[in-house]
Simulated assay, not measured.
Amino acid sequence: MTDVVVVTGAGGMGVAVARRIGSGRAVILADAFAEPLSQATGALRAEGYAAEGIVTDIADPVAVTALATAAAGAGRIAAVVHTAGVSAATATVQQILEVDLVGTAHVIDAFLPFVSPGTSVVCIASMAGHQARADNSALATVPADELLSVAGVGDDPIAAYILAKRANQLRVQAAALAYNRRGARINTVSPGVVSTAMARAEADSPSGEHMLAMLDACGIGRTATPAEIAEVVAFLTGPGSLYITGTDILIDGGQAAWLRWHQ
């Protein structure tokens, strides 16, 4: 049976992940926008990948369920890597909550019935989730269609983004038992600043100067490359991480440590 890799998000991180773990497998790339999805899928095919694009709005539970169903129909789901999302610099509070918060819950829920022993799911959260000042346990367990009612972040996009990414981490922790019972694993990866189009847009935003100054202050002095994130995803979806589930891996060049101990 064909092994299938599903990657949501046709941006720099998603394409890097598809390249890293998609060789010899059927790659299903999903994105809300048809044009970048077509470009990314075409580029992967030109490089020899068996890639297919499916337009999917992860904020829509019906669309996400259709994606999961299509993936299961193509073979055994070996990995699901959820990179799709929006940023505080370019999206409204409502968009952040619908895509980054509720959309991630849809992915976790929709793929659960289709995973099998050996399947690994990785959701991209963010270093921002580690900056949340308090945990709201309801974010981990309430049904996806009730998440917006417990968010409560007002009109601050940064607060919405922090809450959404912390919720991603918590929700994956809570989902680990159900995935374990099906022989599958689920984890989050929390990047810092990665050199993608989204990060460049953030760098040009009012908070961009502070974001870039943090990279120097923490000592790393550079952004991460998408390939560095893909390498960690490859570990979490590979045979060397079979005992790792329900946890988060922070890849931020030491920014969170600097914020906690040296700021």
Score class of each variant (00 low, 15 high):
194 V>A: 00
113 P>N: 05
232 V>W: 02
112 L>M: 13
181 R>D: 09
29 L>A: 05
8 T>G: 02
42 G>Y: 02
60 D>C: 06
168 N>E: 13
51 A>N: 01
4 V>K: 05
43 A>K: 14
243 Y>H: 12
177 L>Y: 13
96 I>G: 04
56 T>W: 04
58 I>Q: 10
66 A>V: 04
209 E>K: 15
183 G>E: 10
116 S>C: 13
199 A>G: 00
202 E>P: 09
17 V>K: 07
131 Q>V: 12
228 E>D: 06
188 T>V: 00
156 D>G: 10
70 A>K: 10
101 L>T: 03
112 L>D: 07
182 R>K: 12
139 L>W: 11
250 L>S: 06
77 I>K: 01
40 A>H: 05
36 P>S: 06
58 I>Y: 05
12 G>P: 01
87 S>T: 08
108 I>N: 08
149 S>N: 08
246 G>Y: 05
50 A>K: 10
211 M>S: 14
126 S>P: 12
53 G>R: 01
87 S>R: 08
238 G>D: 08
81 V>F: 01
145 D>P: 13
77 I>Q: 02
112 L>V: 11
152 G>D: 09
123 C>T: 09
66 A>S: 10
52 E>S: 10
42 G>Q: 01
137 S>Y: 15
191 P>E: 08
209 E>R: 14
41 T>M: 09
102 V>M: 14
89 A>Y: 02
184 A>D: 07
105 A>T: 03
83 T>F: 10
160 A>P: 04
24 G>N: 02
83 T>S: 13
240 G>D: 10
216 D>K: 12
143 P>S: 10
96 I>Q: 02
135 D>N: 13
130 H>Q: 12
125 A>F: 00
162 I>E: 01
259 L>R: 11
253 G>T: 08
164 A>Y: 00
162 I>V: 09
39 Q>H: 15
116 S>Q: 15
229 I>V: 03
239 P>H: 09
141 T>A: 13
252 D>C: 05
32 A>P: 12
115 V>P: 12
14 G>F: 01
73 G>P: 07
230 A>E: 00
209 E>I: 14
150 V>D: 08
222 R>G: 07
123 C>K: 11
85 G>L: 06
11 G>T: 00
218 C>A: 14
156 D>I: 03
157 P>C: 08
166 R>Y: 05
251 I>P: 11
111 F>I: 01
191 P>N: 05
198 M>Y: 05
255 Q>W: 12
224 A>P: 10
38 S>A: 13
199 A>H: 03
70 A>R: 10
